[in-house]
Amino acid sequence: MATDHELRLRERLTRLRGLNLLGGTRLSAELEKLQRQLERIQAAPTDEEIWRSVELARHQDRPYTLDYVERLFEDWVELHGDRGRADDAAVVVGIGRFEGRTVALIGNQKGRDIKERTKRNFGMAYPEGYRKAMRLMELAERHGFPLLSLVDIPGAYPGVAAEQHGQGGAIARSQALMSRLGVPIVTCVIGEGGSGGAIATALADRVLMQANSIYTVISPEGCAAILWRDAAEAKKAAAAFKPDAVHCLELGVIDSIVPEPEGGAHTDPDEAARLLGEALRDALDELEPIPADELKRTRRAKFRSLGVYA
């Protein structure tokens, strides 16, 4: 079924074709561009498929960071606290053995039952969570451990104390620190990559997304509430801003897509972990021979090239 988007493109195309090419080359370039867009969206996920990704990314049985740690790491030691004022349970950090090497890991963590969900603040980090992550980044740098980060956060926590403790500044400084590290960094979005809360720990040499995860500047509901003035239009909003892995790959925001078991990661967590482990290992193998200075330079250059303008 044709999407609204596709219909609009077709309409514009027909209208442009109807004009005698008065604009000359400019107009025909525009025609070509529209034609290309049309071909692309026919191959891209449909609005329905995008919404399915949103639902799977938020599925209550979807594996979380610690589910993967337990399947992929040996000798895992979880570390706690930001060395300042708190231990944010929405962010898990630690060191462990992964495929024969010691790595440092940062991951967002949601809760399984209502008690754990409350304890982990539904996965929404405070500034203390980002300071905890930064402490791990420094540890990784000091000892030359590669850094892995698993992103699964609806968004940074919007609360009074979070603001008073400097939510915006913490997210900015966490990114800045990642841009200075000389060790390889690999990030994978394993569920919700929610806005500033996600990018805080995602400034990596390789950014991966699981096939049914989403990466967003704003939640579909939030976007719908603002632009459509109705949170119930979330599906339309998601179709418009395209948070799915395929579109993120196409826009150059991620480097590759990690496959999931048929039906989503929650249908077979062991297989999901195996596929994720393979992707993380391949990325690390590629990055480890690269000298620190070059890693850092290339990482910054990659992020500095993101954007589309004329």
């Binding site: 990114q175 990018i199 967003t216 801003f241 925001v253 910054r300 992020f303 954007g307 589309v308």
Partner: peptide, 13 residues
């Protein structure tokens, strides 16, 4: 969309 979020790491770098 996501490209606007990417302006955060871009300006940070």
């Amino acid at each position: 969309g996501i490209l606007s979020l990417m302006q955060l790491p871009k300006t940070v770098c």
